[in-house]
């Protein structure tokens, strides 16, 4: 398992470096408030399951925090609420 994890980790780091390069380029061109959690996934997993579950929980938490701090997202939500929430007033 250790050999597999090391291999997986090396592969992950290599790909991550490319991914981060593209990410930085895209970040400069698009919404600068968007963030990602991928940097943290370069840590080697001791248990794939725990790692995946933790990654999932972390992503959920970050999506919530991002929404609280991102006025662009909040504006999108306000617009959607007007469209999707109309039954409330019936």
């Amino acid at each position: 398992m250790l050999i597999y994890e090391t291999k997986l980790y090396k592969k992950c780091v290599l790909k991550k470096q490319c991914f981060l390069l593209i990410e930085n380029q895209e970040k400069n061109q698009t919404d600068k408030t968007m963030k990602t959690t991928e940097q943290k996934l370069t840590e080697p997993p001791k248990s794939l399951g725990r790692w995946l579950m933790e990654s999932k929980r972390q992503t959920q938490k970050e999506m919530q925090e991002e929404y609280r701090n991102n006025p662009v997202l909040q504006a999108i939500v306000s617009e959607l609420k007007k469209k999707n929430g109309k039954f409330r007033t019936l």
Partner: peptide
């Protein structure tokens, strides 16, 4: 993706 429901 993001969406809202009728219950906000």
């Amino acid at each position: 993706y993001i969406f809202t429901t009728r219950y906000d």
